[in-house]
């Protein structure tokens, strides 16, 4: 039970990082980015590709490769449909996630790769009588720090102020002279970078395989809806709720827990469409 909760918290800190980007992009541009998960997967793949030559610097380098890819993706496929119904962003990014998963399988095969954590983090620590890998704790702490930095950025910088303005009322923000178009592209890139970083950081824990992005995107959606689409603190809390619900119980009880979780999320969408905290928005 204790180990399961701890694992839940660790998964939750990764999920927070990916859901945050999803929530941010939705809040900013009303873009439902289904391809967010495969950007996470690309992060993991570029990480294992760069690992032999760059060592652990690959963890920084992998996101740096994914960001321009994501920006190109936004430019080519999402920007042209900005004037169409929002649902088209969902359709296009769903197709993109198919493409990228297919490309990953084509280029790098369907095998699952598990990386050993770096030497200094290879031991285990004793927590209340349970042996726990150090790397998990380190990675979880690091992704929490990054999540925290994103919050600080959004809350306390001039650019963050613009982002919040657009999320509140994009037409009004545009009327005040904020370049929505440019900000959306860069935030899309930034969110992709964080997803890719999560993928790289998680490689020694969750392993790297082509379908990894498809798995995390659904969990991220759940987290985002629980917390309220576009509401960042809610999103982070939602991520931990989802992760804990999935990890606690173990085995078949957990499977039931997931069924219940989907049911809860469905109920929230109908009864509290602005999320548990009433601060996001869905329609």
């Amino acid at each position: 039970m204790f180990v399961n909760s701890l694992n839940g918290i660790i998964y939750g800190s990764f999920l927070a990082l990916t859901s945050l980007g999803l929530s941010l992009v939705f809040g900013l541009g009303r873009v439902v980015n289904f391809a967010h998960g495969v950007l996470y997967a690309l992060g993991g793949y570029f990480f294992i590709i760069f690992l032999p030559s760059l060592g652990w610097g690959a963890m920084v380098f992998a996101p740096l490769v994914v960001v321009p890819l994501a920006i190109a993706m936004e430019w080519l496929t999402i920007a042209p449909i900005r004037n169409r119904d929002e649902i088209y962003t969902l359709l296009v990014t769903f197709g993109l996630s198919f493409m990228i998963t297919g490309a990953i399988e084509y280029l790098w095969g369907t095998e699952t790769t598990l990386i050993k954590p770096p030497v200094i983090f290879q031991g285990t620590v004793d927590i209340l009588g349970n042996q726990f890998p150090v790397y998990r704790l380190f990675a979880s702490a690091l992704s929490l720090v990054v999540t925290g930095l994103v919050f600080v950025f959004i809350q306390y910088t001039p650019v963050g102020l613009k982002i919040r303005a657009i999320t509140d009322d994009s037409e009004m923000a545009e009327a005040l002279g904020i370049n929505t178009r440019w900000l959306l592209t860069s935030i899309f890139g930034g969110a992709a970078g964080f997803a890719a970083f999560a993928g790289a950081l998680g490689a020694p824990i969750f392993s790297v395989e082509p379908e990894m992005g498809m798995g995390i995107i659904i969990d991220s959606f759940l987290a985002v809806i629980l917390g309220g689409l576009g509401h960042l603190p809610g999103t982070a809390v939602g991520a931990f709720i989802v992760a804990l619900a999935k990890s606690i119980g173990g085995g078949y009880i957990a499977e039931w827990a997931i069924a219940v979780l989907f049911l809860v999320v469905a109920a929230i969408m109908v009864l509290r469409p602005r999320g548990v905290f009433g601060r996001g928005r869905i329609a």
Binding site: T77, L91, V92, F94, G95, L96, S97, F98, M99, I100, T101, G102, A103, E105, Y106
Partner: peptide, 9 residues
């Protein structure tokens, strides 16, 4: 799979 996704997009 890549081609199917591309055709759809």
């Amino acid at each position: 799979q890549f081609s199917f996704g591309l055709a759809f997009v």
